[in-house]
């Protein structure tokens, strides 16, 4: 996939540069030789520019990759298998949240965790008690 889009980018850019240079040459020529008459840009130069643009666009679309498959579990830090979805599909809420669930978090976790209402004294006590049982 990456190689195809790279080749397409290359060909597209070469075509664009070539058509640009051709139109420049054509302009120079019409200035020196035919300055009194209307002298339109040849069709092949125009077509070359259009084809170059289209190739670059196709290359860009092909290069879009789906999301990474591995995500990190937020609380424990272990790497877990995420959910791979095909790129360039309409985003479905039910599927988009799968990745967050694999991470052990969600966009709405803050509502439940309530950091604004943290009871720091109780937390400290819990931690000390846990530490004491852990040491035994």
């Amino acid at each position: 996939m990456a190689l195809t889009s790279f080749v397409l980018y290359g060909i597209g850019v070469i075509l664009l540069i070539n058509s640009g240079y051709s139109s420049y040459e054509h302009r120079q020529l019409s200035k020196t030789l035919l300055h009194s008459r209307h002298f339109p840009l040849p069709l092949d130069v125009k077509m070359e520019a259009v084809v170059g643009c289209v190739l670059v666009l196709i290359g860009a679309i092909i290069s879009i990759q789906p999301n990474q498959t591995h995500v990190v579990d937020v609380a424990s830090g272990s790497v877990v298998e995420g959910y791979t979805e095909e790129a360039l599909r309409p985003i479905d809420m039910g599927k988009a949240t799968i990745r967050q669930e694999a991470m052990g978090t969600s966009d709405y976790a803050q509502i439940e965790n309530r950091p604004g209402y943290i009871d720091i004294r109780a937390r400290r006590k819990e931690y000390q008690e846990w530490l004491a049982t852990e040491k035994k």
Binding site: V72, M103, A109, Q110, E112, N113, R114, I118, E126
Partner: peptide
């Protein structure tokens, strides 16, 4: 990961271990 822990307020309910 750490920014996510901060954003989701997970530090308030993070398992003790």
């Amino acid at each position: 990961r750490l920014l996510e822990i901060h954003r989701s307020g997970l530090y308030a309910t993070l398992p003790l271990h």
